[in-house]
Amino acid sequence: MAMDQRAGHLEPGHVIAGDAGLHLKGGACASCGALAFPKPAICSGCLSEDIADAPLAGGGVLYAYSVIHVGRRPDLPYAVGYVDLADGVRVFTELTRTDGLCPDMKVAIEISPEAEGYRFNAAPVEAV
């Protein structure tokens, strides 16, 4: 499948159940505490291989976005952006809508089951 047709799909290994439902599964270094997503096999900060599963924050702010009009997806246009999660991790994600977007707006990460994994994106939680 073309890479831009897989956008928004998460393999099961990238999701973890937490207090507030499903979360992106990051890795927290047991040695230095560094947090990263996706969960790495080795900490790029201190080289420890002792990395614990870490449910990432369910929301944050939209750092920047773009509405994409090209590619092989059937549902053009769609929007992507970088979300700065409340715990310090930045995640590249699709957004739930293409209008009414603005940098620094609050967004929530939404994860829901779909075939062979999960669907995920970020939804604005306030009007511009």
Partner: peptide, 27 residues
């Protein structure tokens, strides 16, 4: 691009990357 990179597997394109720079700079 090489889709072993997670962002690229999620649909990152070079125009999207630069467009987000533009978005933020304009903001």
């Amino acid at each position: 691009l090489v889709d072993e990179d997670w962002e690229i597997s999620q649909g990152m394109l070079m125009p999207a990357l630069y467009a987000m720079r533009a978005c933020r700079y304009m903001h």
